[in-house]
Amino acid sequence: MFKQLSRAPGRIARPVWVGLAGAGGVLRELMRSPQSALGTLIVLFFLMLALFGPQIAPYRANDQSSAPRLEPGGEHLFGTDYLGRDVFSRVILGASSIFRTAGFGTLIAVVIGTFVGLFIGYQGGTVDEIAGRVIDALLAMPALLIALVILGIVRNLNFEPGSWQARLADNSVLLVIALVYVPIVARVVRSSTLEIKTREFIEAAQMRGESRLYIIFREIFPSVVPALVVEASLRFSYAIFLVASLGFLGVAARPPSPDWGLMVNENRGGLYDLTPWALEYPAAAIALLVVGVNLMSDGIRRAVQKSG
């Protein structure tokens, strides 16, 4: 009923409800197509591993009590690596680190990017002009390159272990993900804002004398949510890829963390011929999760378009 109201032209909508009512529709829509249903299931599967990994995994991540280089099968479903660590357990335990880094990184980027995008989009004028150029400049640089430079520098600073700088440095990957995605999210939100702020209900609010903050967050923000959801899911899939790449390049996770990218890196070269399974399973996990998130975000986009 609210949905119909919001569609009615010329009416003053209460768009907060649109977002909430839309969420149920989006989920239903998501499960309707087989591809996006599959993607969603894959993501949920890995999310479950991330949440309950320690309960599921038969071994601890750095347990080296088994014989090294055992082929997959029997007690070690995915075999053991050169140090005698259970690959199956490491793949399961690796899910949490990728969800934490990519997930929280994306979340931070979405929150900050939304604020920035809403503000500069609504403000317009010189502020928009200057911020727009800064965003353009940041977008011109490849995300991986920025991430590598920052992490390369941070990793080689020697902070006192346990100090706040060291703790910050330990979470630098998360912050880097946020940093490289803020401009992208901000740009998407800004362009939606530009379009929405010309609508009549905004004009009405302005005429009612509502404050700028009220207009931005109560009137504009809810209308931006559909575009934001699509963008966030897309960012999440790119973030997974970025985290895995950074892990592979040795700047994201610290050994002996069961980070998938790190595992791929550690077991390539001569070790790949000896224990191919120690590389192939984590690589497959990365591929599967990226495909899953992509299918899901495709579905989200379609669903949002339909219900929006």
Partner: peptide, 13 residues
């Protein structure tokens, strides 16, 4: 690679 491997083996032991 070999030294990082050694570090991981030592850490576990």
């Amino acid at each position: 690679p070999d030294r990082v491997a050694l570090a991981q083996a030592l850490a576990a032991q």
